[in-house]
Write a protein that binds this DNA or RNA. Structure first.
Length: 485
DNA sequence: TTTTGAGTTGTTCGA
DNA sequence: GTCGAACAACTCAAA
């Protein structure tokens, strides 16, 4: 390869300059770079990213462009079919090679394979890398040679065999080729009319620098005690909040792994909490395994017995759940946190997901779709796998009789009530004893707190005990013999 | 091949 | 108030 030949670096879900194998390989090739992000129009089978994620993408691309510019480079933005855009760039710049980091949903992989074949036919060198996962989905196999369907053995195997590669530092200077670029402002990723993203900007700093600041903030304190405090949404900094950064590849799991392990080795972190935190990273990996071997994970039941589940259709109940108006404070607080900040605490995600699928008996796909549109971190693998897990239809899923009691969960994990009081301010003056079940409070208590159920705060859309029994009865249907119907 | 032990995150009831 | 058992049966992973 002539050292003057340009290499195209196709950025996708890896919006970072450090520990980016494709970028490092392109730099090592010695020629100038063409750094491009393509707004793809040919991913027919893939869902477009949700509205919240678009907001993040907008900011993350700006941060990436700035990172490149500060090193003497430039980010090219294009819209079109990926193969055509790349061919066009090759024509414009004289590039003879293309590199990217792999992605793992079926639509994306199919498209990438097609692009790769077409480029190779034209005599272009193409190489792809892993920047997104500790180990790629096909890497770990059980003794019988199949993929892992149960988390714990998967986690044991991962822990035993994974050794992170040496870190790759961000290039200090870059030389990029001139090529026509579109403008981000024209992409309309930031919402207008109305701009509902006001709650996002105060809560987040998209981009690689923001990702590392978030990691450092987590490692400088909250990681110690994480094993317990991670379940407490009323404690502001109890989790890492790295999920949206991971979603867009502003930081990779290998970088997190190295940083955590280094802290354990120097005795800086409590070992148990570090282990629990890394196991959460491993759940993300496990989700990618499930997605890879089950491309329809976001659409169809992993466990086909659930095809017999008698889900209801109830637009009013779905809407109450989406808007945070179910009358169960911890559920409503979670749904409102999601709407305002694009994120929800993990413990609360489980509570609201259990409520939708069990108390309301609505299909998990409806919840998955809502999360897809409203979560900044909406991930094709983790979102689908987690919803199926909660519903009971997923791999290694919760037993069907595990129906979260939203009152008990609220009292237990929002012990101080700070979480409900923040997101449901109309309940702020309800005393702790009734904060998670205002419908059980005596009338004079509600009056003193300025609450009128049905007016200032909704009455519960379902009664817990009856809804629980209905869910248990419905789940029995998934157990019936084939042909019993 | 067969067997065995185990499996993210809970709730309710009754002693 | 606390504690242990029941809730169900099945699939997976590994010996």
């Amino acid at each position: 390869m002539s050292i003057s030949t340009p290499t195209i670096v196709w950025f996708r879900e890896d919006l970072r300059l450090s520990d980016n194998p494709a970028l490092s390989a392109a730099v090592a090739a010695g020629g100038p770079l063409v750094c491009v992000y393509i707004r793809e129009t040919d991913l027919d089978d893939a869902r477009p990213i949700g509205a919240a994620a678009q907001w993040w993408l907008d900011k993350s691309l700006r941060a990436l462009a700035q990172g490149l510019e500060s090193r003497g480079g430039r980010l090219v933005l294009r819209t079109g079919q990926s193969a055509e855009v790349l061919a066009d760039l090759i024509h414009q710049t004289g590039a003879r090679s293309v590199v990217w980091n792999r992605r793992y949903s079926a639509a994306e992989q199919t498209s990438d394979a097609r692009v790769k074949a077409a480029l190779k036919t034209d005599g272009i060198a193409v190489e792809s890398f892993n920047a997104r996962l500790l180990l790629e989905p096909w890497h770990l196999k059980t003794g019988a040679g199949s993929y892992y369907r149960v988390f714990t053995p998967f986690w044991r195997a991962l822990r035993a065999s994974y050794v992170p590669a040496p870190p790759l530092s961000a290039p200090e200077r870059l030389q990029t080729c001139e090529a026509p670029s579109e403008g981000l402002d024209g992409w309309g990723l930031h919402p207008t009319t109305p701009d509902w993203s006001g709650g996002f900007s105060g809560a987040w700093t998209p981009g690689e620098d923001g990702a590392h600041a978030r990691l450092e903030a987590f490692l400088s304190g909250p990681i110690n005690g994480y094993a317990e405090t991670r379940n407490r949404p009323d404690i502001g900094a109890s989790t890492s909040r790295l999920s949206p950064h991971l979603r867009f590849g502003e930081i990779g799991p290998a970088q997190i792994w190295r940083a955590v392990k280094a802290g354990v080795e120097t005795g800086r972190f409590d070992e148990r909490s570090a282990e629990v935190f890394l196991s959460e990273i491993a759940w993300r990996e496990f989700s990618y395994v499930l997605l890879h071997f089950n491309p329809q994970l976001a659409q169809t039941n992993y466990n086909p017995n659930f095809d017999r589940m008698p889900w209801r259709s109830d637009p009013a109940a779905l809407s109450a759940w989406q808007r945070g108006m179910t009358g169960y404070p911890v559920v409503d607080a979670g749904m409102r946190e999601l709407w305002h900040t694009g994120w929800m605490h993990n413990r609360v995600r489980m509570i609201v997901a259990s409520f939708l699928t069990k108390h309301l008996l609505l299909p998990w796909q409806a919840g998955e779709a809502w999360f897809w549109d409203t979560l900044l971190d909406a991930d094709p693998a983790a979102n689908a796998a987690s919803w199926q897990w909660t519903a009971g239809s997923g791999a290694d899923a919760a037993p069907y009789f595990r129906v979260f009691n939203p009152i008990t969960q609220g009292s237990k994990f929002d012990e101080t009530g700070a979480y409900v009081r923040r997101w449901c301010p109309e309940l702020a003056r309800v005393p702790d004893k009734f904060l998670h079940s205002p419908f059980d409070a005596p009338p004079d208590v509600l009056q003193a707190a300025g609450v009128t159920l049905g007016k200032t705060y909704p009455k519960p859309v379902v009664e817990h005990a009856a809804a629980r029994q209905r869910a248990l009865d419905a789940y029995k249907m998934t157990k019936e013999e084939q042909g019993a119907a």
